[in-house]
Nucleic acid binder design. Structure first.
Lengths: 241, 241
DNA sequence: CTCTTGAAAACCGACCAGCGGTTTGTAACT
DNA sequence: AGTTACAAACCGCTGGTCGGTTTTCAAGAG
């Protein structure tokens, strides 16, 4: 029998490689439109080899998702276990972390990634990822709110519900952010920037109310946040002078 | 050539029939797990016949979704065009409509339907449906808030953003409702009921803040809402004495 | 009013490429 | 030598296509 060249690797190494290839493909073509064969071709592995490491295509998806979420969660944990900061400060860090995990964590194409992830074809991917983030962030946020209540800073009827709602607000912000990013450079950019600012304001307004804080307490949005978001340069069109 | 009996129908009729069969199957087996062949068998139509009316399986999905959303939207429009009511009353009607469209609109198995729809395998279905509802409900809610601002009842920085956030709150409520429904009959039922009440309270608290209303203005949840939700009897297991 | 006609609409069912996943055997490492 | 890591052929089934067949229905003829 003729046989192609073959390169054995350590299981973890192969796994990582396959996850990497899968991530690239999932986020460009979408999960459904990515064939296992696509992954196979990109990684240079046979089907048998693949199914030796992953028992299904779904497991591959969850693997990718886990890999992405891992870093965020550990950072969150780190933030929340800081005993010296007040609950309010912790909350501030938490929200910024949640809002910027793309920027902090990843390769330069984070914005592109964000856009691709929000396309219709990646609906499954996105929703599955959101769930991971939510379930992973819940305990951390709960702990922070608990601490705030103990301190007497926060006044909340039900901690879990409060935490959950705040995390939902993040989803709301994601949508606003997406719209803003998509409008960058277009003539509607100013309008989009206004909407983004409105969403940010409303987010913090709502958090104040959820936690029983006086108006304006959690105005964590630093002033130039919107400008920063709208300014990330797309590859400058040569027509610009 | 032998030929099976064949029954031609008006296009709309066939379309409706296929949509009906699809709806049943989608919500029992899930979208991905439902084969077009399944629909074919249930409807007694051949593949060619099917693809004469629908150009893809996805179009079938969107057809089902549209059919479901249609009724809600028309009701919403009706509600919002009532000139005699105040904005606050309109909002009340709107929220109740949004919260109860399953109960109002459908066959007796609404709860079952809700549960099935929230299963993991129906993620696409659910999310796609939510989007429809959101985009369809947006203009109505916007109009209501606009009216409230004109009246001087509401005070909102950005109407669209406010409307969007309120609709996101509905999603939040859906989750809470789902948890409650799933806990019915279990020994955690009381706990779940508490959480549901907390979510309801927090929803209205948040809406107050969003619209710039004094605390407690939009306490639209009628007192026995939670009990009603938790009480729907499941088919009583014969092991119960 | 009935009958013919013919084109368009409705429909059938065999067929296909490609999918996720399995199996069986073999090369490579320890 | 035994186990691990992989290859390649294979399988059942899926969504979708295609050429052909049947119904329908309106218009024209008698």
């Amino acid at each position: 029998m003729k046989s192609t060249k073959r390169k054995n690797m350590q299981p973890e190494e192969r796994r990582a490689q396959l996850l990497g290839c899968a991530q690239i493909l999932f986020f460009s073509k979408g999960f459904e439109d990515t064939t296992v064969q696509d992954v196979l071709d990109l990684a240079g592995v046979s089907k048998g080899g693949f199914y030796h490491h992953f028992k299904s295509k779904d497991e591959l998806l969850f693997g990718v998702l886990d890999g992405m979420a891992e870093g965020v969660f550990s950072q969150m944990d780190l933030v929340a276990s800081d005993e010296t900061s007040s609950a309010l400060e912790l909350l501030r860090s938490f929200i910024h972390l949640r809002a910027n995990y793309l920027r902090e964590h990843d390769y330069p194409g984070q914005v592109e990634f964000f856009k691709v992830m929000n396309q219709d074809k990646n609906l499954v991917l996105l929703e599955q990822f959101k769930r991971r983030v939510r379930t992973g962030a819940m305990p951390v946020l709960t702990r922070i709110i608990q601490k705030g209540c103990d301190e007497g800073t926060f006044a909340v009827a039900d901690i879990d519900t409060a935490a959950e709602l705040i995390l939902f607000l993040s989803t709301f912000m994601d949508l606003a952010l997406l719209r803003a990013i998509e409008a960058r450079g277009a003539e509607t950019a100013d309008h989009a920037a206004g909407k983004l600012q409105a969403a940010i304001d409303m987010q913090f307004l709502t958090i104040d109310r959820i936690l029983g804080l006086p108006d304006g307490t959690t105005d964590f949005g630093w002033p130039e946040a919107v400008d920063v978001t709208m300014a990330t340069e797309p590859p400058p069109p040569p027509s610009t002078n």
